[in-house]
Amino acid sequence: MAQLGWLIDLDKCTGCDTCMVSCKSENNTRPLGSPMPFKNGMGVIPDHVSYRWVVKREAGVYPNPSVTFVTSSCNHCESPACLASCPVSNVNDPSNPANAIFKREEDGVVLINQDVCIGCKNCIQACPYGAPQFNSITEKVEKCTFCMHRLEAGLQPACVTACVGNALHVVENFNASESGMNAPEGFADPSLTIPSVKFSTS
């Protein structure tokens, strides 16, 4: 199995949020248009589902502040906690398409099937990375699909093609021993789920 994964060049990310928006446009995640929906109906936090987002991690003290931009999405883990926590998935048969959450045998991509998901939100609790997101309209959970529909046509995921800094890359045969390599401070312990992501810092 040639696991698909991510290589993120932290030194080249411009922190622009383009990956977030390109993904939204490609995958038609909410909100599609005006008016802006808000969580709990209060005009504070937009109620959106975004499979990719950028963490802006600030550190340091003036005059030496720092900001690390960390683009984050589903890491299509070797041992996905979402799958393990899902009551309508069989953790011992991870690639079974009857699961709500299943991991494809051919490339290790982890997918949530809306037609099986019961919206219990266990996976949201379990995932160390925040990948699964609850959709308040469908009352199901969605997440990054690695743009399977693009890959199958020989194209790259929308986040990768749009990336302004050329910082986000697909790794076609991700080596699990590199899981979490050069991860920024605060990144979850990779031994928990063996995420298919590695970083570069120069």
């Binding site: 446009s25 038609n28 309209i137 699909t145 529909h149």
Partner: peptide
């Protein structure tokens, strides 16, 4: 396979 509220493009 429905993976989200809407189909991708």
């Amino acid at each position: 396979l429905n993976t989200g509220e809407n189909q991708p493009d």
